[in-house]
Nucleic acid binder design. Structure first.
Lengths: 338, 338
DNA sequence: TGCCACGTGGCGAGCGTTCACATCGTAGGC
DNA sequence: GCCTACGATGTGAACGCTCGCCACGTGGCA
């Protein structure tokens, strides 16, 4: 009968306070239908004993865990990991706790197992922040039993999962348009990995904007999101001849590209204009400060959560894309009169 | 009696398979002491019904949730958010699921509430990745009931919580020593915010190394980790006269500082040598590539988890600090013969 | 005085699982 | 051919909580 070192339970509180455990439960959940006197007494005992509600017992009987799962691609790319924070924070504001699983290179099998683990733990919904095409399929399998929202730049409505995204195609068009409006007739593109939806979409936006202005699209160069790949490409382009302007698919790649330029004595933006993408924290600090496209991760995370909550509670929600914004700094200017 | 759309339970499986729920339970957990025939039959029914174990019921009876809580400072500083991924990943490898809470500016009250939420949800331990001095106190309150590991550069053993850290003081000494060995007699320091333990410790390391070489410590400049603050300080220093070398408390600040230099036509490393700290992803891409101190976040995260697990399971564990490493690139060189 | 309503509190059941123990049948040893 | 032992299964209780319902007492009204 000795309570040992076990955490105090409802019954322990009830015994000490001289009421039934039911009454204690009522005090905890809203305190309705309990007289002020008993309520205060119970509250006192709770404080005295250091009682903490056991949410797992609670979840068992209510069959609501008030938790969601978040799967995030943690490869060293800017977006995912800061979106994760935004999603989690929005979840907490809504009273949910986030179980998270990050993976630096998401394999099908691992992702599937993670999904299963989340389901067993009773999450009420899942957010996937991983723009790899392959993950969509895994998500689909589990979606029958659970609301899933996938944060991805592609539209994948056919999968039966809700997809929300930042309109990166628009972002790419904004970047390209900025260069065109500055007077550039030659806007090249250094693309990101085409394995990522982001890479595909940014490329598509660039093409579309060029077409809209009846400008020809120069040959595309493909990097792999790393600064190093962009640096190597930059060196090659310096040797082969530079365009008057270029839209680079990410800030980090823009940075690598610029390094090749500096080494060769090419000036930015005097000799070549550059626009990046992401608005990384370093973008305003490089020389010259980088004109780029800002993704509003915080907003995206919050909206994403809103959509998931909507689906959990059976509400209809607006999942129109978030809109990115051009941030003009100093890496792009009017072309040199040739 | 209609099972409705409820998820199938052990009993449902048992009924269909024509065995008791106990047998099903045995099949799930190891399958010991069950004949092959029935095991296969049960497995078949499980697959057919799409049964998934309910971990919350399981946790209730075993009183083990196999989950940990992670509180991370998500302010736009490099370290915390990538450490988070490392910790979570290590936890998953050990069979634990991570509940995470990120906060961009951790206030006492919010942190306390988060701790409580974690406790109510039955986490078996908590990792705090937040080098703010103030959080240590909050952590202490909860530590009586739960193992807490705090990832922090300061030693706070008096708090009764386990502290693990990367030896940033050593890192700062490494950076300073590198500059001295290159031949610099004047090594300035641009410090980070002293509200952060990291900022204090890096400053201390710089001082210690200077002292060890009997070199005087120039007046310290204080930034707030932002690139902008470093840029402003850089401009002022350019006007007032530059030292021959400087150790900057973070890569991002180093970048801002270098921007001020470029604008003034000062060359790196010809006119001034610079060493940063963190080895951010952009460090190798800036021009010139930044010599800096690498923190091994992945290792730190894994060790951190190891320590927590040790405390959960009552094992004795080694929590000696992780050691950072100097990465030599091109922003520091021998001083110009004056 | 009787009745009903309502505010307060208690009781019992059940959520889905595991654990300790009981049961049953069969094979092995003498 | 009986007893023992063990392998294969079933039974009951418990984990800590919430939910539905019932019981009790008091006050207002006819």
């Amino acid at each position: 009968m000795s309570s040992g070192s076990r955490r105090p339970s409802l019954k322990d509180v009830a015994r000490v306070a001289g009421v039934s455990y039911q009454t204690v439960s009522r005090v905890i959940n809203g305190g309705d239908r309990v007289s002020v006197a008993t309520r205060d007494r119970v509250l006192g005992v709770i404080a005295e004993l250091g009682y903490r509600r056991n949410d797992v017992a609670r979840a068992l009987v209510t069959s609501r865990t008030r938790s969601i799962g978040v799967i995030a691609d943690a490869s060293p790319k800017f977006g995912p990991v800061s979106t994760l924070a935004a999603v989690e924070s929005a979840a907490r504001d809504a009273g949910y706790t986030a179980l998270v699983a990050t993976m630096s290179y998401p394999e099908q099998a691992v992702v599937a197992r993670t999904f299963q683990d989340f389901v067993e733990r009773g999450v009420e919904g899942i957010v996937v922040i991983a723009p790899r095409v392959s993950l969509a399929h895994v998500a689909q399998e589990v979606t029958a039993s659970l609301p899933v929202v996938m944060l991805s730049p592609g539209e994948a409505s056919q999968l039966g999962i809700t997809v929300f995204y930042e309109d990166q195609e628009l972002g790419a068009r904004l970047a390209t348009r900025h260069l065109i409006e500055l007077g550039h007739r030659e806007v090249a593109h250094l693309a990101g990995s085409q394995d990522w939806l982001d890479g595909q979409v940014r490329l598509r936006g660039w093409q579309a904007e060029l077409r809209a202005h009846q400008l020809a699209a120069p040959a595309v160069r493909y990097g792999d999101w790393s600064g190093e790949s962009a640096y190597l490409i930059g060196r090659r382009m310096v040797a082969e001849g530079l365009p008057s302007s270029i839209f680079v698919a990410s800030d980090l790649m823009a940075l690598g590209f610029m390094r090749a330029l500096y080494e060769a004595g090419v000036r930015v933006p005097a000799d070549i204009s550059i626009v990046g993408f992401d608005d990384n924290e370093f973008a305003p600090q490089v020389y010259p400060p980088l004109t780029t496209v800002r993704q509003s991760f915080a907003t995206v995370g919050a909206r994403c959560m809103e959509i998931l909550l909507g689906r959990i509670e059976g509400r209809e929600v607006d999942n129109s894309p978030a809109v990115p914004e051009l941030v003009v700094r100093h890496s792009a200017a009017a072309p040199h009169p040739a």
